[in-house]
């Protein structure tokens, strides 16, 4: 799920060593796809993503037959938990209606007729909690999950775990990697900030934590400005865009955010920024 690499131009930046250490090459490729939604080949979507059922129901499908997107990132393989609401068994499949407290979704499990009857696992019952791994599908405008694995939950803490996992991954995509050193980022994206400026630099702007509302791009731009050798001029938008492998208008948006927060200021012209230190 950690497809937040930090851009294609990674190794040419001043913090290239960190990038290399984190295996940024592959990450960079997947980031392009997930963030810009371009036609580039993506791998990140095939990672299993923990979700809530509400996220499944609200997953956005840009056009029929295309991949679903949650929080702007493509998803196919899902992991979620829920209580069985009802079961409908046909000759070819079992359809479970699953409720996790955030919504209801149908989960289809195909019956393998070649399977040795001795090894057939007992069917979960209504009211039981199960953990489902499967693929999100749409058929006749109705969404269901094609299950690869359905496992009954014997330890209820697994339910708490998956719901918290889903929250963490949701926040990861919406806000970017966590910035506290204690919380290990799954993607290793954290690495880019831990450079000679001190790992603490990103958490502390004049002693203040970074605003939680800051977008992922905003964090990246700020990280770059901070890791860049400081002079009076700062960096021009086109330089930032080139180094982070971003579109200039995305950088402008991030800059507006940072200017609004008083974290950076304009120098020689409106398009050249430096970190506001005090």
């Amino acid at each position: 799920m950690a497809n937040y690499g930090y851009g294609g131009g990674y190794s040419t930046t001043s913090y290239g060593e960190q990038g290399g250490a984190n295996g940024g090459g592959f990450m960079g490729g997947s980031q392009q796809g997930s963030q810009e939604g371009g036609g580039s080949k993506t791998y990140g979507k095939d990672t299993v993503r923990p979700v809530t059922i509400k996220q499944i129901l609200e997953a956005h499908q840009p056009h029929p037959d295309s991949d679903f997107k949650i929080d702007g990132s493509e998803v196919t393989q899902l992991s979620f938990v829920g209580q069985i609401h009802s079961i409908a068994s046909q000759t070819t499949n079992h359809t479970f209606q699953i409720d996790d407290g955030t919504g209801l979704v149908d989960v289809k499990q195909w019956i393998d007729s070649d399977q040795d009857p001795e090894h057939v696992r007992p069917l979960p019952k209504e009211g039981e909690y199960i953990h489902v791994w499967g693929r999100l599908k749409a058929f006749n405008n109705k969404r269901h999950v094609g299950a690869h694995v359905i496992r009954p939950i014997t330890d209820f803490n697994e339910v708490s775990m998956v719901l918290l996992e889903a929250t963490a991954v949701h926040l990861y995509f919406v806000r970017g990697p966590p910035e506290t050193p204690g919380m290990k980022s799954e993607g290793g994206g954290q690495g880019m900030f831990v450079d000679s400026n001190g790992g603490g630099a990103i958490q502390n702007v004049g002693g203040k934590p970074m605003p939680a509302t800051l977008s992922a791009t905003g964090r990246k731009v700020f990280g770059l400005l901070q890791s860049h050798p400081q002079n009076n001029e700062g960096l021009h938008v086109s330089m930032i865009a080139a180094q982070l492998g971003l579109q200039a208008n995305d950088v402008f948006k991030a800059g507006d955010e940072l200017l609004g927060e008083g974290m950076i200021y304009t120098t020689v012209d409106d398009e050249t920024w430096a970190v506001l230190e005090y």
């Binding site: 809530t52 509400k54 996220q55 955030t102 803490n157 708490s160 719901l163 918290l164 949701h170």
Partner: peptide, 19 residues
């Protein structure tokens, strides 16, 4: 503790939990 963490997340990030 995990249960209250889930409840806390439910209301703090309700966009993925309920309307």
């Amino acid at each position: 503790a995990a249960i209250s963490a889930v409840v806390d997340a439910t209301h703090r990030y309700k966009e993925i939990f309920y309307a």
